[in-house]
Design a protein around this nucleic acid. Sequence first.
DNA 1: GAAATCTTGGTTGTGACTACCATATGACTG
DNA 2: CAGTCATATGGTAGTCACAACCAAGATTTC
Lengths: 207, 207
Amino acid sequence: MGLRELKRERTRRLISDKAFELFIDHGFGRTTVEQIAAAAEVGPSTLYRYFPTKETLVLEFVEDSLFGALDWFREQPPIDLPDGLQSVIERVLDQLEGNPDRVRTVYELARQTPSVSAHLTEAIWRWRNELTVELSRRLAADSPDQPLAGESVEFTAALAAGITMNIIEITVQMWVDNPAGTDVKELAREAMCLLRGGGIPLPAVGR
Amino acid sequence: MGLRELKRERTRRLISDKAFELFIDHGFGRTTVEQIAAAAEVGPSTLYRYFPTKETLVLEFVEDSLFGALDWFREQPPIDLPDGLQSVIERVLDQLEGNPDRVRTVYELARQTPSVSAHLTEAIWRWRNELTVELSRRLAADSPDQPLAGESVEFTAALAAGITMNIIEITVQMWVDNPAGTDVKELAREAMCLLRGGGIPLPAVGR
DNA sequence: GAAATCTTGGTTGTGACTACCATATGACTG
DNA sequence: CAGTCATATGGTAGTCACAACCAAGATTTC
């Protein structure tokens, strides 16, 4: 790795950390981008080159966790779909559990600030849509002509992706509300059991 | 109704209509609030009094459809929960089907403009959370001590609300993509059938 | 018709974000 | 090592969404 890349990572980290400090101390709305830039000892122009919007400063970590797991899933070989979704969920939860403080802070900021909340939900929504595409691909490639309870592949994929997203959101929410008494992955596993039970017509083998 | 209220409704409508015209013609980002105010022949101050943000101009209709149905549901007597959720879904879809053009325009604008998309998902997310609260209330009041497959009431409520939201989103999405060939309510009814089938442990009688 | 109340439009200010340019700094070549 | 090339940086100027405030006009109420 060249010196250039190294410095870039360092600067990015520095800006992000200083931003979180200021957000925690003074709130999102009461912190200006110029203050963050000054704290990180860079010009505002530079800051904007790394983080196109103020909200990105907060949400980059969550977004990386989500889309990292999705990228991983895309490279997995065809696999039993419920198992696949469960492993995606666990991968996301692993990432988030690695930085509990950041997760809590993000949730706190989202609760207080509408624009953060809006960008957070938008990222989750975008993630769900991309997961839908991937599931459609796997379902279509797999089932030559399965009835799927009379519904189309797109419909099933969208529903499965939506429920996957719901499980992640709900388990994380409960974990944030009660950090000590919650085993996130166990909770997600139980939730998945409900879905395997039969109601949602996930074919036993997806692709 | 006094003259004051009448004028207020008229002005609100006028601003909203002009805004949609401009958004359709020139796009969301290329239209300034001042242009909208000028087109509606009011001052920018007045516009901001009616619509606190530029995005509200676009999303008020969707938000009214969602939360109107929720308000209605809150006033319903205890009822079989799957039936209740299905009627909520149908109520939302009825509202949206009443203005197909607006719905399509909103989706179009959301697709093109990140900030509109963000505010749209945030509104949907907020709606789901309020539905979760209402479902929790009904479930708690009903079941003296049902096992609920080992999960808490909150968890079941959140999952049910999430799935309800998913069904609405998916059916509307498919309707927007293919306006002619989709019977939204029939689609939603079929989706609900899947859930009644057993996988999601909605108790047969909620409250 | 007068007083109280609400609505309006304008003014000023802040802060996020864009476009642009000159300078500095690490990277590669002879 | 010197030179040049590509990229990163910081600063400037400008746009636009939005908040706070205030004076004038319209509506309602007595």
